[in-house]
């Protein structure tokens, strides 16, 4: 049950975008079309889950025993960058289909701060391996969810008669604000299980 709540909590209550305000760069950048949003979401989910697990292993078996916790951020950055690159190369070679779906988004993930933030958070929360994986997976799911919803609204707004100074990024920011407001409704829900 508590595992389920980790996932649900990460998706809805502490949504990585709307509540933790992480990963805003791809959130604003790759949300113009729902197809790309879906691709980005899937790529992020994959990488974030793997990164969470790997980071936990590095942290638990390398940094903590050798008392190098102060290097956590640095080590995680390196690990994540490498994982992303590695994933891209492997996918490129092995699965043309997956490459077509995820290909162009993978390099962008390197700069997604959510991918660094979530492993750091779960390390800070003292999660175990499974919990870290679930937390990473849930957060990424929340990111995907937010991205797809946002893309849907932005696609719709393409046809709207938005005042000229507000076209594009400004109105997208406004929308993200309202979405954040909506997600505040879930505040407190995770305390009652």
């Amino acid at each position: 049950m508590s595992y389920l709540f980790i996932v649900l909590g990460a998706v809805l209550v502490n949504n990585v975008v709307f509540v933790r305000i992480l990963g805003l760069c791809p959130f604003m950048g790759v949300s113009k079309k729902h197809e790309t949003a879906l691709g980005m979401g899937m790529a992020t989910t994959f990488v974030l889950t793997v990164a969470s697990g790997t980071s936990y292993l590095i942290d638990h078996y390398l940094l903590v025993p050798f008392d190098l916790v102060y290097l956590r951020t640095l080590a995680f950055i390196v690990v994540i960058a490498a994982i992303v690159q590695l994933t891209e190369l492997v996918i490129h070679k092995t699965s043309p289909l997956l490459q077509q779906v995820l290909g162009i988004y993978l390099p962008l993930i390197t700069t997604n701060c959510a991918v660094l933030g979530i492993p750091l958070l779960s390390a800070g929360l003292g999660y175990g391996l499974l919990e870290s994986l679930l937390f990473g997976f849930g957060s990424a799911l929340g990111f995907t969810f937010a991205l797809i919803l946002f893309a849907g609204i932005r696609e719709h707004l393409e046809g709207a008669d938005v005042p000229v100074p507000f076209r594009g990024v400004p109105i997208a920011m406004m929308t993200a604000g309202f979405m954040s407001l909506a997600f505040m409704g879930f505040a407190g829900l995770d305390r009652f299980h």
């Binding site: 590095i58 390398l62 080590a75 390196v78 690990v79 490498a82 690159q85 590695l86 190369l89 492997v90 490129h92 070679k93 092995t94």
Partner: peptide, 17 residues
């Protein structure tokens, strides 16, 4: 860590071109 990852990446770059 960095070295190990670097080697892995370099190998992958050649292998999966």
């Amino acid at each position: 860590i960095t070295l190990a990852l670097g080697i892995a990446l370099g190998y992958a770059a050649i292998h999966f071109k």
